[in-house]
């Protein structure tokens, strides 16, 4: 690992002021530290944001669940309030990686990183989330812009993620057997305004599978997915799963999700 300066920050202002083009925020470190150790990334400044109290915690209202950016996966998985208001979200958190990862990894780190097979981005899309940063609010459909890319500006800090509580929802994931990231993850959420079917793992970036969303908006039942065609073009192919298989699993897991709603 290359040497770097470590800063432990107390508030958002201090953290964002230190940020530069060669810095990274340190939340759970589950992505940042391995990439530094493997020599895939190096930074001049590492800005630890875990001690900023304001960034951590869960707030539930009648309409939404708001989660602070440094809240760990294990906290979301175990939260009684989330389990009650939005059980699909706590179930998603419980299915991330392994206990070590869940005990350190954070929601803010996960969506800032926007790994194409991460779980949380699908929740953001399905649950019409709003990303609150230190200087603006970004709606989820504008946030995830590409593989490992978001609309965050350099040094912009995610403070919280606000999820809309739907009528019904369910997340179904086919985990990569090695890493346990999603080979395909499908988040189905039925809102008053319509159904969102967010898919992760299948393409270079999370997306709303409009064909299935539309079919379900018309008729919210597993059988209405049967005749939807999910094309394998643009779908990822690697040693773990071909595009053909992934495309089929999008449908299979969407059905499973609807059935389990």
């Amino acid at each position: 690992m290359k040497t770097f300066n470590y800063h432990s920050t107390k508030d958002v202002k201090e953290a964002t002021k230190l940020a530069s083009s060669s810095s990274a925020f340190l939340a759970g470190g589950m992505t940042t530290i391995p990439s530094m150790k493997l020599g895939l990334a190096s930074y001049k400044d590492i800005i630890d944001i875990k001690r900023i109290k304001k960034l951590s915690g869960i707030k539930v209202s009648a309409k939404s669940v708001t989660i602070g950016s440094t809240t760990k996966h294990v906290e979301v998985a175990n939260s009684k309030e989330v389990k009650k208001a939005l059980p699909s979200l706590s179930a998603l958190a419980e299915g991330i990686g392994d206990p070590q990862v869940r005990n350190r990894g954070t929601i803010g780190g996960s969506i800032a990183n926007n790994d194409p097979s991460a779980d949380y981005p699908s929740a953001c899309i399905a649950l019409n989330a709003t990303i609150h940063t230190n200087n603006r609010k970004i709606s989820a459909d504008k946030f995830f812009t590409g593989m490992f890319e978001t609309s965050l500006k350099k040094g912009e800090l995610i403070e919280a993620i606000e999820f809309q509580i739907p009528e019904k929802s369910c997340y179904q994931k086919y985990p990569n057997p090695a890493s346990r990231y999603a080979i395909v993850g499908v988040y189905v959420a039925k809102h008053k305004s319509g159904v969102n079917v967010a898919v992760t793992g299948a393409k270079s970036c999370v997306y709303n599978e409009k064909n299935i969303s539309n079919a379900l908006s018309k008729n919210f039942s597993a059988s209405s997915i049967d005749n939807v065609v999910v094309s394998s073009s643009g779908i990822n192919s690697d040693i773990h799963a071909s595009a053909e298989y992934r495309a089929n699993m999008v449908k299979v897991f969407a059905k499973k999700a609807v059935e389990a709603c």
Binding site: P177, A178, S179, Y181, I239, H240
Partner: peptide
Amino acid sequence: LHENCHYDDSGQLVTASYMDYTM
């Protein structure tokens, strides 16, 4: 059911970490 060492055609080891080699 799980494990498989995979080299690509140029001889690069694709399963060189636990992200890709299924234990």
